[in-house]
């Protein structure tokens, strides 16, 4: 079950509800970093052209402006976007990441300053090696900056809500004649069935093959006979979900 996976973080709210974040791992965060890096480099290059044209070849003045711009982009870019963009720099937005405080709160200015200035420590000795090592030692993938600021980088799932499973053709009374009113299925078995039934991209032969591995055992448990294993599993799932829900033990 989800609780044993180590890439989630639970948050308890004042409403006494616990919800779960998916924590972002190093690869996804590195990709977001590269996107941000490209954006920063492109902006600086563009600015360089603009300043060079505007100053009409005043080389020294434009180099002063460029150095200040380089400073602002190096240290201020993330702080600005994370505080103004609610925890998302453009790169994080592109990869559906968000920085949140532990506890699920939005991050503030101070938090963002800390986690981004400490890139100076995470970057050591080269290319964020220390940051990645620190992330590897933490169940929630926090680099040094995250740990000092008390922040997490989470994935915003944004999964769509799939439509309900519909049996076609509709179930007939004959088909489920011998079925018990509530099929004896554990929760994980029922989820397995649901995942199987939603995988419509499999070929018919493969579906058949997969269904045959589990259908006989289920049928034996329920004391009925199997004709078409795929249809049988669909019927069992339908019976299990259209009755009263299973209680989690």
């Amino acid at each position: 079950m989800g609780a044993t996976l180590d890439n989630t973080a639970d948050v308890d709210t004042p409403e006494l509800v616990r919800f779960r974040y998916r924590v972002a791992g190093p690869v996804r965060r590195a990709l977001a970093y590269l996107v941000d890096l490209a954006i920063r480099a492109a902006s600086l290059a563009l600015l360089y052209v603009v300043v060079a044209l505007a100053s009409g070849g005043g080389k020294r003045f434009s180099s002063g402006v460029m150095l200040i711009a380089a400073f602002v982009f190096e240290w201020g870019y993330y702080v600005y976007f994370e505080t103004a963009g609610d925890g998302r720099s453009p790169g994080k937005r592109a990869l559906a990441l968000r920085v949140v405080k532990e506890g699920g709160f939005p991050i503030g200015f101070i938090d963002s300053v800390l986690r981004n200035l400490l890139r100076g420590a995470d970057f050591l000795p080269v290319g964020y090696v220390l940051g990645v090592l620190t992330m590897a030692g933490d169940a929630r993938f926090r680099r040094i900056g995250d740990r000092v600021a008390g922040t997490l980088v989470v994935i915003e799932a944004r999964a769509g809500l799939a439509s309900p499973l519909v049996l076609s053709p509709p179930v007939t009374a004959d088909e489920v004649a011998g079925f018990p009113p509530r099929p004896p299925l554990s929760l994980s078995e029922r989820e397995t069935l649901e995942l199987f039934l939603r995988r419509t991209e499999l070929t018919a032969a493969r579906r058949e093959e997969l269904a045959e591995t589990i259908a006989p055992a289920l049928a034996e448990r329920m004391g009925v006979k199997v004709q078409d294993p795929v249809r049988f599993l669909a019927l069992v799932h339908h019976r299990a979900t259209s009755g009263a829900p299973v209680q989690r033990s």
Binding site: F19, I107, F109, A157, A159
Partner: peptide, 29 residues
Amino acid sequence: SAGYSREVIAWLDDLAARAHNALYSAPPY
């Protein structure tokens, strides 16, 4: 508690997390 599918729970998790993040927002700058 009713043991609905993982997918429904994940959807609600995400929605609750986003709403929590927005409602308990940081003080304005």
